[in-house]
Amino acid sequence: MTRLLIALYPEAWRRRYAEELEALLEDSRPGPRELADLLRGALRAHLRPLRGLAPLERARNSVSGVLGCFILCLFFAGAFAKTTENVPSENRAHTLGLLSAAHAAVMLTLLAAGAALAVAAAPLALRALREARLTRRADLILLICVPPLAIGALLAVLGLSALWFHSHGGRGDVVTLLLLVICGVTAVVAAFACWAASRALLRRIELGREQIVPATAAVAAVALAMLASAVAMALYLAVMVLDAPAIATTADGPGGIGMIGPDVGVQLVAILGLSTIALVSARRGLSSLRAG
């Protein structure tokens, strides 16, 4: 558990302090409070990286940080889409179309973030492919294969589950629940695999300014689009609470344990937090490139 928490620290930080931190944890036998403190420390270390890193290394960290935030953001965006899928259309008309406009804005800004991420990833992916082709390094080839395989596995599980729901009417039986759990676990594993493989690739390939500069600029656009998505979601929530409070208090989630309004509120806070971290990270990357 402690090794896993230490692994959450930035690589440069781990190179310098991980062994000492491990020794301290061996000596002091940490409890839940110490483990929570370690988690907070990892977050702070990401928000305030060690000085003395080369500008290109800082920019790489920035790209990797924004990618991680975007992947997490996708989970909350998926939850938002699921939470709001059954909002009745007649109520949307009642609120003069603002709800549906805000909903569309959330989805469009996230699509824009995804497109910006593809622009950021393109020069890095091309560079990785070229290096793998020239050097025939097995580790590079394996890492390049991980994201498409992970996405393919996720799509296969989602497709099979959709087929099952379609043929069995999506009843709330044990098999349906089990399939939902499998979909959730596969999504988490696939997202982590994509992020970890991209991060490892970023560290293993030789990158010059010609690849890192456009990638850093594009991840800044990703962070801005994420923030715009959070603003649109805030608008959606405000319209719902002020204009259609009946929707906000409608039951949501498995067994109706939640309510649409509070659930969207939690998703909003998460996406706002992630977009703020992504913006800070992107700004650091851009300023390090200017300084370098």
Binding site: Y17, L21, L24, P30, A36, D37, L38, R40, R51
Partner: peptide, 15 residues
Amino acid sequence: LGPGTLYGALARLEE
């Protein structure tokens, strides 16, 4: 002092 707090402080002071 928690381990994360301690090493966060040590890193800043060393820097």
